[in-house]
């Protein structure tokens, strides 16, 4: 089912959480709401679910206005950040809950409920766990129970609030891949909230980047990463160096033109000698040489600007760099943004 969010605004007291947010999610897509904490992404998710009411705007689910329908009627599967499993019920009863609270006429028979719950247990790879209580499960297992419970009601859309936020790194990796596969099998329109750009880039079909209650950019992971609409998106998706003009250090632009440019640390090339005449001169402040990627902290000569460079360990050894040495730096690409208009020039 498709989801349309039209001009939604929401405030808690005097705090404006969402400001005129408009968003369209086509049927069957897996969409990530990505943004720093406080950007309004969880509130937007709760609004779609009907757990919060909007101050302004409309929510349309599957072509029907759902702005004023109750949570129960919307039939959305919601997976909570801390799972919110019913702690006094077994895993089986947790998953069966949504089926058992249906009005008597629509309720399935006991045997049918049991069959459905067992199917779901198999789907989330927890066969044989039906009699356990949530307290007896690991974090990853609880997360999967929460997902099975949400899927039990045959939801029109699946909403997940920081689905992997409370898990350790290894389990998170596994579950990410698993969710991706599950989405491909079920083909259910899904929205998940995350503050982890890597997670969003890896899992989602499309990413919605949010900041301070507004949408900064919507696009595929590829587009968002390679064509960020503004400095916020650029900075949020990875490490970024900011260079402020006017200066003639960066070759592709006319000398002395005032501008602000952004370069990722791995897009800077370091040489020991001035190869090109417009390379930046800098001194090495610090070297972090742990792991396959070496990070250098550099200070630009004749300016109080600091920036980061990343290179492979091989390249680092080849250059034989030492702290406090003077080196020359040349960017391979630069992103330049002007005002609100977005991308102006990139190579």
């Amino acid at each position: 089912m498709s989801i349309e969010v039209q001009g939604i605004s929401k405030a808690f007291g005097k705090n404006s959480i969402l400001r005129d947010v408009t968003l369209e999610i086509p049927k069957g897509e897996l969409v990530a709401l990505l943004g720093p904490s406080g950007s309004g992404k969880t509130t937007l998710l709760r609004l779609i679910a009907g757990l919060e009411a909007a101050d302004q705007g409309r929510i349309v689910i599957d072509g029907k206005d759902a702005t004023h329908t109750s949570v129960q009627e919307r039939q959305v599967g919601f997976v909570f950040q801390h799972y919110a499993l019913f702690r006094h019920m077994t895993v089986f009863d947790n998953i069966a809950f949504g089926l058992q609270v249906r009005p008597r006429k629509q309720r399935l028979g006991k045997a049918e409920i049991a069959r459905k719950v067992n199917d779901l247990l198999a789907l989330v790879q927890l066969e044989g766990f039906g009699n356990r209580y949530p307290a007896q499960l690991s974090g990853g297992q609880r997360q999967r129970v929460a997902l099975a419970r949400a899927l039990a009601i045959d939801p029109k859309i699946l909403l997940l609030d920081e689905p992997f936020g409370a898990l350790d790194a290894k389990v998170r990796q596994e579950l990410r891949r698993w969710l991706r596969q599950l989405h491909q099998t079920l083909e259910i329109t899904s929205v998940f909230v995350t503050h982890d750009q890597e997670e969003a880039l890896e899992v989602a079909d499309r990413i919605v980047i949010m900041n301070e209650g507004r949408i900064e950019q919507i696009g595929t992971p590829h587009d968002i990463y390679h064509y960020p609409a503004n400095p916020f998106v650029y900075g949020f998706l990875g490490r970024a160096n900011r260079f402020e003009g006017p200066f003639d250090g960066i070759g592709q632009l006319p000398a002395h033109s005032p501008f602000v440019g952004y370069v990722r640390p791995h897009e800077l090339e370091v040489t020991r000698h001035r190869v090109e005449k417009n390379a930046l001169q800098a001194t090495i402040q610090h070297v972090y040489a742990i792991g396959p990627i070496v990070r250098l902290d550099l200070k630009r000569a004749e300016a109080n600007e600091f920036f980061e460079v990343e290179m492979t360990y091989e390249r680092y050894q080849e250059l034989n760099l030492q702290p406090h040495e003077t080196v020359y730096v040349r960017p391979r690409t630069v992103k330049v943004f002007t005002g609100e208009k977005g991308l102006v020039s990139a190579r």
Binding site: Q75, F80, G98, R102, R149
Partner: peptide, 8 residues
């Protein structure tokens, strides 16, 4: 909230 979202 979970219960309500499940239709209770």
């Amino acid at each position: 909230e979970a219960a309500v979202s499940l239709g209770a």
